[in-house]
Design a binder for these strands. Sequence first.
DNA 1: TCCATCATGTAAGGTGTTACATGATTGC
DNA 2: GCAATCATGTAACACCTTACATGATGGA
Lengths: 204, 204
Amino acid sequence: MREKRGSSLLKDEGHETSSRNTLCYIMLGLLQIRPMSGYDIKQTFERAVASYWNAGTSQIYTTLKSLYKAGLIEVEVIVQTSRPNRKVYQLTETGQRELTRWQEEDVPERFTKDEFLAKLFFCGQTDDGVALVHLRQHRKSLQEQLKHMKLMQQEYGSRQSRRQHLLEYQLLVREYKEAELTASLEVTNRAIARLEERLQHEQA
Amino acid sequence: MREKRGSSLLKDEGHETSSRNTLCYIMLGLLQIRPMSGYDIKQTFERAVASYWNAGTSQIYTTLKSLYKAGLIEVEVIVQTSRPNRKVYQLTETGQRELTRWQEEDVPERFTKDEFLAKLFFCGQTDDGVALVHLRQHRKSLQEQLKHMKLMQQEYGSRQSRRQHLLEYQLLVREYKEAELTASLEVTNRAIARLEERLQHEQA
DNA sequence: TCCATCATGTAAGGTGTTACATGATTGC
DNA sequence: GCAATCATGTAACACCTTACATGATGGA
């Protein structure tokens, strides 16, 4: 009875959507802010989105292609002489509608995955030295993420507010992520301190 | 030049591992704690691992099969009369070695994904009402996760400490995750309060 | 001369989700 | 009689990552 669903977006008339296509919608969202090329989109990911989503260039280009095929975006080729041509994409009306639909739709619950915690969980099966190495490296990673966020904030936050409202939510996301990272860093630091102390006692 | 790599685990002699197989290793880790069936593993995921990793039953069974084929686990069939037979798996020596290798290996950096933040980011493009709905639902989800963790802690934490050291890291993971969730909840609550206030002013 | 940046992609394969399939027992 | 629990799995597909491919310009 149940129809086989098409490979992508919009196609499911049966309105029992099963796939999420989050990347598609993020890209539509970015293209709504301003028309961009695949390359621009990758840049934007690195600068503004990386802390909670990212994608390799290959995925970006294939997704652009599928969005184009689905009629959600249109393209304008900008000929350049001294560089490869740019293909600048922007939303179609259908794309705009589809984006709005997604924005209003509930956020689906999905399994959270954290490889660091997965490994840490089993550290009791080896020795504390191994755990300490992982914890220290994780601390470094957290610190770098926080640093990167602050850097981007300086560069980006000072700029335009020609869409005040848009910026507001972007700041909220940053606040959220920063709070999360800071909390994680604190726990990590405490754990490192505890372990270091214990290892010192053992040596003595 | 570069050799094509085999489909799974251990096979790459060329030691430039590219895939992560995190789920495989988590399952090996769980089986090291005690021998289990696929069903038991799923239970354990729900009870103890869900906050940072999870998998559907189908994935668990297929992964068990591939671990078995790779010689990392062995099976004992326990015949039951009034229920389907249980296949209880445990690590082989090779599996044990492979697990240890993974535990000592660096945690690879990977893109973090957060669908809620992805959606929130673009909420400036619609109206505040939509954002408020998402935020409230997210708050509910965070509260439930925290509640679930506390429940599991009562049930599980009171039990055996026949491996003190193992438990220690499991508690650390819980502490970490709880701190993260709590920080997120605070930011979410603040954001909701701000929005509610603004919407009330607009109405007046 | 070498490296970074600009700019585009294809192919292959690994990982994760959803839908579907089966069937007995225990407790309400 | 119905739902939940125990217990196993297959098939299809959606999603993501890695490796590979190309090639010009501009600055150190």
